[in-house]
Structures are given as structure tokens and as C-alpha cells.
Amino acid sequence: MSSTATRRMGGWGVLVLVALAQFIVILDTTIVNVALPSIQSSFGLSPENLQWVVTAYTLVSAVSCCSADASPTCSDASGGSSSP
């Protein structure tokens, strides 16, 4: 296979991976939204407080994704060693 064909397939692979990741994020948020009536009845929350549930879930999800991605980068930038 030529290098041009390999690069073209690699680009498609990245596109598919990013699309799949975005689908999972949207699916995850949809699951939380579907569970809102059950959460409301279980905890006796007002509609205003339900918005905080969605906001908190989305924020924690975004921060955990960013921090999981940044941890090796941060240790490399600070000169940390991976050896014990």
C-alpha cells in the first residue's frame, strides 16, 4: 500500500474515532436527561435544581476527560519521572 493511501486511511480512522467519541458523549448526556424525572421524584427536586444536575454532570464529565488527557502531559512538562 502506498504512503498516500495509508495517510488517507489514517485520516478516516481519526474521523471515525472522533465521531464515535462524540456519539458516546451525546448518548451519555441523553441518558442523564431521560433519568431526570426519576431523579426529580427520588430527591424531590424543583425544575430549577434539575438543571443543576445536568450542568454538574456535564461539567464533571468534561473536566474528567480533560484531566485524564492532560495528566501525562502535565507530569512531562513539570519534569516528573515515571520510574519509582
Rank of each mutant, 00 (worst) to 15 (best):
F43Y: 15
L20A: 13
S67Y: 12
P37Q: 13
T6D: 12
C66R: 05
S78G: 01
A62C: 06
Q40W: 09
A21T: 03
Q22S: 11
L17V: 04
S3K: 09
W52Y: 15
L59R: 13
A21H: 03
S42D: 08
L36D: 05
G11Y: 14
S3R: 08
L36P: 04
S64G: 13
V54N: 14
L27N: 08
T4L: 15
I26G: 01
M1P: 00
S81A: 14
D69Y: 11
Q22R: 04
S75V: 05
S41E: 04
V63Q: 08
L15K: 11
T4N: 12
L36Q: 02
V34Q: 14
T30N: 08
T6P: 05
C74A: 15
A19F: 04
A56P: 07
V53Q: 04
P84E: 14
V16R: 14
R8E: 07
S61E: 06
G44R: 11
D28R: 15
S67V: 07
I31V: 08
A77T: 01
S41L: 05
P37S: 13
V14W: 03
S42Q: 12
P37R: 13
S83H: 15
T30P: 01
A56C: 03
L50C: 00
R8K: 00
A56S: 07
L20H: 00
A56H: 12
Q22K: 06
T55I: 02
A62L: 09
V63H: 07
V60W: 09
V25T: 02
T58M: 12
S78D: 04
E48H: 04
S61V: 01
S81K: 13
A19T: 05
S83W: 13
N33R: 15
S3V: 01
E48D: 10
G79W: 09
S38H: 10
L59I: 03
G80K: 14
S78T: 01
S67F: 11
T29I: 06
R7F: 12
G11I: 05
L50G: 03
A35W: 08
P84H: 15
V60N: 02
L36Y: 06
E48C: 01
I31N: 08
S2D: 10
W12C: 05
A21K: 01
G10E: 13
E48A: 15
P37W: 11
E48Q: 13
Q40T: 06
Q40H: 02
W12H: 03
V18R: 15
G80H: 15
T29Q: 12
R7V: 09
G44T: 06
D76M: 02
V18K: 15
A77W: 12
T55W: 10
L59T: 12
S46I: 03
A77Q: 11
A56Q: 02
G11S: 14
T73I: 01
A19V: 00
M1F: 14
I24D: 07
V54T: 10
A68T: 00
F43I: 05
S42T: 04
L15F: 15
V63W: 12
A68S: 07
S75Y: 10
T55N: 10
V14G: 10
M9G: 03
L17M: 09
D69A: 11
S2I: 09
R8W: 02
V60S: 08
T6G: 07
S67P: 01
S41H: 08
G79A: 12
V14H: 01
W52R: 14
T4I: 00
